[in-house]
Design a protein around this nucleic acid. Structure first.
Lengths: 215, 215, 215, 215
DNA sequence: ACCCCCGGGACCTCCCGTTTAT
DNA sequence: ATAAACGGGAGGTCCCGGGGGT
């Protein structure tokens, strides 16, 4: 089974290298030759693991999906704070994890087939979580849940998009600024006492990075 | 001078076709052959007007810059309302004008050289306009100008980004929803009476489209 | 020995699949992956039995050689009738047996090395048999043996060649028509009474098919 | 028009080189790189004239069709002699003209689409000419026209096929031998006085070669 | 001045026939 | 006998000049 292990390591190296180059150069500009070179394997090895370039893309997106699912996992706090924490986790991971970043940005390319749309997944999760917050009566009565969802999704997409060129958009302070603003309108004047705009997660890497991705 | 006229028409057709295909397929995926075919000219003509593919991209971006500058032109209202109106104009144009959409989305590609960064221009303008709004004392005292800027820029970028795949993100109602939320915290409780979240522009196309782009 | 048996069955399956695909797609177009897939074994197994692609080709040709040798075996009739019968056997086998067909058509490819040339073997046999017929005084005196050989070999090659695209060239009636014509000039006016243009073999499969190829 | 001339020369060089290599190595084995190198042009030039490899093949086949049509042109002699002459022309051209040889041998490959089947054209022509010979009462009454057609077509195909490996099959003497045999059966005992088995054409190249192919 | 035919190479993706470790 | 990895091209296409026409 030692063989299998090496195969897995090779596969991971390939996915990682692909994510890096897809993220840096875009899907079409990144060449398979560069990817396999960076992964330290031959182009034949690449083709052994991934039949085509889009298969490689799909692998990146799928892997990013795992990360996203970790971020949107269940948490034991008020839904609104969960929203804040998760968005911080997302942005932090976007800054640190090429695979998530590449997968998020490129999930549209693979759209032809049945590959998952990561932004869609994120949006769905934000929707249900916002509704949960509404049920917990943590939102001002005159705030439509849908408005909050729209704002949060657009915000995250914007940071991801802008962060692609200037990494400073992905700093914690940036998102915190936005939440500071939003909290006041959605949660009323007492917001600052109940919720932490900066998120409650540690300042370290997202848990997924530490526990799972370390192989 | 009939020659000149035809040359201009050819050039415009080229820029338009390029914008369409850059927007649809991405910069690298779009081939010059396809572009010249869609513009109805030969590939030789393309190279007569544009020395290289990036020169064509630059033309698209420059042209989009004209549109953006029209959107961020001077207006005679309170700065905060101007911000609202301009963001609506931007989003509407993004939905209607391929050139602007392509130029905005691809302004990063040409970044190597001295070509303008449209998102940067937009951000700068938002900054100074927000500061103007602050000087006009239209913002709640406990709202940092920088927070507003961040939120608005991220929001616009997010809508542009999401709108690339699902055009519904570029509908007027979407942005209106976000402004409804923001206005309450940045402009205090009287916001609804002073400002129009839906923007004050007509519901038609942005002025630039009507007056300038008609050739 | 059960192992040996399975190995032989695997080998035969491989040769059969190779013959099929070589015949259908040509030697270079047929891929080893397709061949091993059709044989129902792994590509590793293929390389265990055949060191290279040409080794596989050689096996097909060698196997076809067995078939050809059965067709040109000794028979206890007048040499001219033997010629007729054997040519019918050959054409019938060409129609029914992929291995023979592939081996015959591709025996040129392997020509570089020492692999047998099936068409050459056939030609040699026709030559000696025609001479035998001459010795038996079954040929008209004004017919050069060499002319008969040339005609028969060219005819068989032509049918094989044309049969590759349109199987009807390999029907018994086709060859019978040619022999009907030839017999009259090579065997004199009494030909029709002495020889059977349609061949004396049964109308079933060639003997080799029945006795040997049944595994 | 100097440009046009060069283009035509380039195109012809490409077709010629392709025919040579298709004939020598087979369609799939011949690489476009080798073809363009032998033609003395770049691979880009090749792609300018021929969109794909099969397009190049089609051009070869089409060009060979021209040659074939010249061979089967109208002649002012008895139909049976025309048949003899044309078959000699065909075989001689097969020996001398790579384009015809390649086109004839490969006309099956392009069969997918609507490309012409050269052997089919030849067969049709032989059929109508044989029927003409029958109408002219030059055939023995007990000879079925269809038998003659079959024999002639199979013969020509056989010589073409065998000539691919051993050029001696394409010598004039070879076909003459076959016709010597055939004439006696189809045209009766007086055949030798009426018809020339060796053909009436000069011993030089086929007319097409001389008059048309010289550019 | 404006345009297009023709040609030039540089890659890129894909896949193929192979060995090496196990 | 297998799973994994290897390189080497294959065909295709792309982005571009350069020299003639109009």
């Amino acid at each position: 089974m030692a063989k299998q292990e090496r195969a897995i390591r090779t596969r991971n190296a390939l996915v990682g290298a692909a994510a890096e180059l897809f993220d840096r150069d875009g899907f079409e500009s990144a060449s398979l030759a560069t990817i396999s070179a960076r992964a330290g394997v031959s182009s034949g090895a690449l083709h052994f693991h991934f039949a085509s370039k889009v298969a490689l893309l799909d692998a990146v997106v799928t892997e990013a999906g795992e990360r996203l699912r970790w971020i949107t996992r269940q948490r034991d706090t008020h839904a609104l704070q969960v929203l804040i924490d998760a968005s911080h986790d997302l942005v932090r991971s976007l800054a640190q994890d090429v695979v998530l970043r590449a997968g998020f940005g490129l999930s549209s390319h693979s759209g032809r087939g049945g590959v998952r749309d990561l932004r869609g997944e994120w949006q769905s999760w934000v929707e249900v979580t916002a509704e949960q917050a509404a049920r917990e009566e943590m939102l001002s009565p005159d705030v439509a849940t849908r408005d909050l969802t729209t704002a949060v999704v657009a915000m995250a997409a914007g940071l991801e998009c802008l962060g692609g060129q200037d990494r400073r958009w992905l700093e914690r302070a940036t998102l915190t600024r936005v939440w500071t603003l939003l909290l006041r309108c959605v949660a009323g004047p007492a917001a600052e006492e109940l919720f932490v705009a900066a998120g409650r997660g540690g300042s370290g890497p997202a848990p997924y990075e530490v526990s799972m991705a370390a192989r």
